[in-house]
Write a protein that binds this DNA or RNA. Structure first.
Lengths: 246, 246
DNA sequence: GGACGGTATTCTGTAGGCAGTCGACGAAAA
DNA sequence: TTTTCGTCGACTGCCTACAGAATACCGTCC
């Protein structure tokens, strides 16, 4: 029970629960956002999403509220939900926080180094390297998330792990385009990190993780500066359906 | 807009918004929890809360879900909401995370030291000292929260500030009983912290904040060991209304 | 031609209601 | 007496419906 729900995907056991509609809706909307079908700043009309997903408004409302708590959408009271517009500044700050949390996690993981944990880390690492070699970016990103999640789990601090996972989910939104650019380098750093954890070298593990996350941040910032997104409307306006003829 | 919703209570300006029912319900339930009217592990029946607060079930549901995201209640699918049972271990970890976040905040605040910010910090500090002298624990705790929130806001990293505020809210649940014990000592440390921030001494500010939060943690742990709470039922059971006669 | 106010429309926020599900209690069997 | 099964009650999850709020459209007036 302790770590079963940390990995999320790792614990596929238990029961393939039918899951509540709310959870399904959450995942569906997340998918729509990361896939770009819902653009940043777009007004999310509850009834529309409800119709699209074939459910009622209530699960959609609840999903939007949870997504708001996780930073995916912004909830303007009385106005509705809008897909969050990721700022350059915010991405920078988010990645900085991630660096902070994960650095500490790595330090703690090295402190209570755990043979079985290290083994699982190595497994994930080889999966990730395989994914990069076969040019499967999605799999690489997913494995990357799992690996980082596992490191935080190994820190032994559940609160820290949960918080880091929350931040990581948001980072993942930005991460995909960077993954290809970073490519194999990232996984070499992972390997070094695991070595440090296995050796129980807190200082080195922390250092590597800090540099690793910092590299990702720099990569992201460079990428973004090369491809400036079009300036979104500063005031998100409620979209209006074209009037019906007749 | 930038910092207005950081303090919560500080920004009483803006609009005396009628606020959505959901938000009111959230605050009401939080209040019921911290005041102890809702005991840890207790089953929260939606219809009951709805009746108590004079609203329908929907706002209550939404409030419970948000509170679940913030760690106040645990949501068991198909079973309902239960007031979170704070573990000793969890409190320890929570305070450790707070230490991490606020240490970094203090460092950053010292980095971009800001005259006006320092002035506001000193104001809060004197308020807090006055509260302690007049033995007003609630005011002291509130002012303490505000001060810490302001430090995180001065860090300039909004994501960090938001996260720290989230953690701080949970800490506050545990903090009240410790406040009296720590008393004036805590505020002397605050003064030293502000001095360091004003001087722009990152290292010293971080050090003071780390020790400060560590003192709180130790205080809390000592207090808890002296007064072990009764072991809550490990399996939260759905409360059952006594059967109607006839 | 531009600005302003009225109106219509759309969406959110909330309420109430129904079916599914989970747990508890009690009876029957071993 | 202990275990197992059936039944009942209550609560959650979801859907539908209604009232209020906010905004865009459009005609009128200056």
């Amino acid at each position: 029970m302790l770590l079963s729900d940390q990995g999320g995907q790792t614990a596929a056991a238990k029961i393939p629960r039918p899951a509540t509609l709310r959870e399904s809706v959450i995942e569906a909307i997340q998918e729509l956002i990361v896939s770009g079908q819902l653009r940043p700043g777009q007004h999310l009309v509850e009834s529309e999403l409800a119709g699209l997903l074939g459910v009622s408004r209530q699960p959609v409302r609840e999903a939007l509220q949870q997504l708001s708590g996780e930073g995916w959408v912004d909830l303007h009271p009385g106005q509705g939900a809008f897909v969050h517009v990721p700022t350059l500044e915010e991405a920078d700050q988010l990645l900085a926080v991630r660096a902070l949390l994960e650095t500490e996690s790595a330090r703690l993981a090295a402190k209570h180094t755990d043979e079985q944990g290290v083994r699982r880390l190595r497994e994930l690492c080889s999966h990730g390297i395989a994914a990069v070699k076969s040019d499967d970016v999605d799999a690489a990103v997913a494995t990357n998330s799992e690996l980082h999640a596992l490191v935080t789990a190994l820190s032994g601090n559940k609160v820290l792990a949960e918080l880091a996972s929350q931040v990581a989910r948001r980072v993942r939104w930005y991460h995909t385009p960077v993954a290809r650019q970073r490519g194999m380098t990232s996984w070499e750093e992972h390997t070094a990190l695991i070595d440090a954890i296995e050796a129980g070298d807190e200082r080195r593990a922390a250092k590597i993780m800090r540099e690793h996350t910092e590299h990702t941040r720099v990569s992201y910032m460079e990428q973004r500066e090369n491809e400036p997104v079009e300036p979104a409307p500063s005031k998100p306006v409620r979209r209006r359906r074209p009037r019906q003829l007749g």
